[in-house]
């Protein structure tokens, strides 16, 4: 058996408190764990919730990948040019201060319901955290690494791919972590205020018709999906590209 960890207590602890408190209320007001589990089974059989989950994850991945690619490109230019960096600074500060989902109503007016405004919210939410980290990564590249590469014959795009890129990846991945958390939360919120699909919409809709079990199920899923993405995408990404930065 592996070693005992305090973290094993956390979820049972919450389940017990939840059961105890919810037992004081009728289940249509405050459903307990068993009610939510039953709800999950029946939703699974209907298949509708699964579609909402797929819709949300699809938006998240498309938006996030687009955003990360753009942030990398802009970040590399900004890291290389002081003028461009100075130009970007007020924009970054401004967008960092605005909650991304505040843009959702405008984007929905502009782009209609459906995937486009949601993807736009994700891009607004994650672009700047990744950008800032990429710029920081660029600023911390030791000059001797660049010189070493040049005197070994690296030029132009090879210098970019084989030196600049690996140098900035650890910082960029920190940005990806932050951006990922913000964009997931913003997506759900945006779906709640103006969507017709997605996990956020599922929660908002069930709230309106007074289905408390579904609302709680949706909330639990948001957290589990984030954990799931962390294990499936972010951790392997970090392991593959940035573990050297932790060791050295």
């Amino acid at each position: 058996m592996s070693k005992w960890k305090m973290s094993w207590l956390a979820i049972p602890f919450v389940l017990i408190i939840w059961s105890a408190v919810s037992a004081q209320y009728p289940s249509y007001l405050f459903p307990g764990p068993i009610d939510v589990l039953n709800e999950a089974v029946s939703q699974w059989q209907k298949g509708e919730l699964t579609n909402h989950i797929i819709v949300s994850l699809k938006r998240l991945i498309i938006g996030f990948v687009l955003s990360a690619i753009m942030a990398f490109i802009v970040g590399i230019f900004a890291g290389a040019s002081r003028h461009f960096r100075e130009f970007l600074t007020p924009l970054v500060t401004y967008f960092q201060a605005t909650p991304p989902m505040a843009w959702a109503p405008l984007l929905i007016i502009l782009l209609g319901l459906g995937d486009a405004p949601m993807i736009a919210v994700i891009i607004i939410a994650s672009f700047f955290p990744i950008l800032i980290n990429v710029i920081q990564g660029m600023n911390h590249i030791p000059a001797s690494h660049i010189r070493a590469a040049q005197s070994l014959g690296a030029k132009s795009w090879k210098l970019a791919i084989y030196v600049y890129l690996p140098e900035i990846i650890p910082a960029a991945i920190s940005g990806i972590y932050v951006g990922f958390a913000i964009s997931w939360r913003s997506l759900v919120a945006a779906e709640m205020i103006g969507g017709n699909s997605g996990i956020g919409y599922f929660i908002a809709f069930n709230g309106q018709i007074g289905n408390a079990s579904s609302v709680l199920l949706g909330i639990l899923l948001i957290g589990f999906l984030a954990l799931f993405m962390d294990y499936l995408l972010l951790k392997p990404l970090h392991k593959r590209f940035a573990s050297w930065a932790v060791r050295s």
């Binding site: 001797s144 070493a148 590469a149 070994l152 690296a154 050297w244 930065a245």
Partner: peptide, 25 residues
């Protein structure tokens, strides 16, 4: 060819890949 006071090895590459870097470029 230059060997730096701080060595300037590439920490994301193995020994082999560091030595291979110039020939690859």
């Amino acid at each position: 060819g230059f060997v730096f006071q701080d060595l300037a090895l590439f920490p994301w590459l193995t020994v082999f890949k560091n030595v291979e870097f110039g020939l690859r470029m």
